[in-house]
């Protein structure tokens, strides 16, 4: 039975800088990586396979350079990887992306369980995973920190909420979005990296998804639209407190806070 993983290739946002002249995002030279928590999703799938059997199939929707991320997923223990790619998919919001992913999953065939990350560091929406489950009409559990099987087809999941941990029983098939707490992703070995580099990454295009509703994909199929983007200038003309000693600095600060009615 298939175990499916959804991964996204993202720019390493800790390396992104804003160009002070143009106030734009400088993406040139910023490395593309597997969305960090998606590595935990891959690891969860590989562990599930090791425990209960099955085949780990990784899907990513994106441009052709995302094949690099898919190859890396093979090195991390996945069995097969496919790139979901087509010009018609460009400009998709989370609604359209999750719809396309759900159609691609149907094409892959039957599955027991799908793993996704809790959220991606570029868009940061956390919507794609659970929305994909909804398009497929299956159960989903978000913020998952543990997964195990009970008997043949009941999955026991631990899920994190602000007040604690929920222990939930779910029927298969289901989709889990995982957090970093679920596991510690393994490292690829030299051997697995070399093997992954040789592997062919299959492509799934719109034409391969015969049933897909063209009105629900790409920019046209996206209910949300970006009106504008900007980098806010939040810098203040603050005051550096000049003082010879720490004591003097502290006293001056207290005076200023008092004058401003903050204390």
């Amino acid at each position: 039975m298939n175990i499916i993983v959804l991964i996204k290739q993202v720019p390493d946002t800790s390396e992104i800088k804003i160009d002070p002249e143009t106030n734009r995002l400088m993406r040139a030279g910023v490395p593309s990586i597997i969305n960090p928590v998606d590595k935990n999703a891959i690891e969860a799938a590989v562990q599930y396979k090791e425990e209960y059997g099955g085949k780990v199939v990784v899907l990513s929707m994106g441009p052709s350079q995302a094949k690099k991320a898919l190859k890396e997923s093979l090195a991390l223990g996945a069995d097969e990887a496919y790139l979901v790619t087509d010009r018609l998919f460009g400009g998709s919001d989370t609604y359209a992306t999750s719809y396309i992913l759900s159609e691609a999953i149907k094409k892959i065939g039957d599955f027991d369980i799908i793993f996704a990350g809790q959220q991606a560091i570029d868009g940061d929406t956390g919507q794609t995973g659970p929305s994909t489950a909804q398009h497929l009409g299956i159960s989903r559990l978000t913020y998952v920190v543990d997964v195990s099987l009970e008997g043949e087809d009941t999955v026991i999941v631990k899920r994190e909420v602000e007040e604690g941990i929920e222990v939930i029983a779910s029927k298969k098939p289901l989709l889990c979005t995982v957090t970093k707490a679920i596991n510690k992703p393994r490292y690829a070995t030299i051997k697995s990296i070399l093997a992954a580099n040789q592997a062919e990454i299959g492509e799934i295009t719109a034409a391969d998804l015969g049933e897909i509703d063209k009105n629900k994909i790409g920019l046209k199929g996206s209910p949300t639209r970006v009106k504008k983007t900007f980098t806010p200038d939040i810098s203040k003309n603050g005051e550096i407190i000049a003082a010879d000693t720490a004591e003097e600095a502290a006293e001056k600060l207290v005076d200023k806070l008092l004058a401003k009615n903050v204390l």
């Binding site: 609604y95 999750s98 940061d124 919507q127 929305s131 909804q134 989903r140 949300t224």
Partner: peptide, 23 residues
């Protein structure tokens, strides 16, 4: 935008085929 709120948002938006802006 709590864990449950994000979960519910995606469920409802997809069911109703409408857009959701997260966080």
């Amino acid at each position: 935008a709590t864990h449950n709120g994000r979960d519910l948002g995606s469920k409802v938006a997809v069911t109703l085929q409408t857009g959701l802006t997260a966080d």
